[in-house]
Design a protein around this nucleic acid. Structure first.
Lengths: 147, 147
DNA sequence: GATTGTTAGTTACATTAGAGACTAATATCA
DNA sequence: TGATATTAGTCTCTAATGTAACTAACAATC
């Protein structure tokens, strides 16, 4: 059986969700290896840590909204980060359902290290792209992400 | 604690692996819903089916290489697709370790339907982008994917 | 032609993710 | 005040994934 391009001019190698998935997986690999090996973190844990680092103390719920993550995923990441002593949580006085999350000293240290590693890694990913391409790429991705 | 942008000018909302992951998840959602509900397929199953449709009969190993998927994932997808009667497999005479995969009539039918749905969906994703942006986006993603 | 190595594909086990039920705290409003 | 509804976060059960060990077929070398 030969390829069936005659049905439509559709081509898998230009299908956006496919490309995005492959690019996401390929580009995550190296950095993921770093935070896994160095801090035994999962992807969601690093995202949660990073949100606290970059946007300041907040509740699990706020992280869900900002990061676009399901609350069970965030809940589990918080437990793991707390066990690693990277964050602590405090019930908020005026509404004891909310827990304010904040970084510990070692959480801040890890955040700094990971931020720097991420910045270097990001630069290496786009090293072959022109500045214009980089701008277009990031802005298209932001639109697609709904950020 | 306030944001700590002074440490570096790194910003999560421009970090490529993060953007790629969010864009990939967001853009997969709608199409995924279609093939899940209509054909009870998982993502890997649709990818395997589509590789056979677009590139012709091949072995599981070839699909692994072309699609960048692990052999266990492909193996499980093949079992599932076979149970749904979308593909069949035949041991190759000259080397009975290889199994040549091919589409059944209903596999072809599903492929056509999914291809058309994918094409429409892809068009809707990039509807807000200029033709130039679309070209840059896809070519950057292909490079990042190693395609 | 027995041993050793390699390759295609599967299986088994452990890890991670997802969906929905659940608990505790607060809010609403009759 | 008491009944009902919401909300933040956790727990439980199941589905999906990743890793590594495994089987079967073939290849190569002594």
């Amino acid at each position: 059986m030969k390829p069936h391009l005659e049905t439509t001019d559709f081509d898998l190698s230009t299908f956006l969700p496919y490309l995005l998935n492959r690019a996401a997986e390929a580009s995550s690999l190296e950095f993921q290896q770093y935070y896994r090996e160095t801090y035994s973190m999962l992807r969601t844990e690093w995202r949660v840590l990073f949100h606290l680092w970059q946007y300041g103390n907040m509740t699990a719920k706020e992280i869900c909204v900002r990061a676009g993550l399901h609350k069970t995923k965030v809940s589990r990441a918080i437990v793991a980060l707390e066990q690693k002593r990277f964050i602590k949580r405090d019930k908020m006085a005026h509404d004891r359902r909310n827990e304010l999350l904040s970084l510990t000293a070692s959480g801040r240290k890890a955040s700094i290290d990971l931020t720097q590693a991420a910045a270097r890694f990001d630069a290496s990913l786009v090293a072959d792209f022109t500045p214009e391409e980089q701008v277009v790429l990031r802005s298209c991705l932001q639109k697609l992400s709904g950020i």
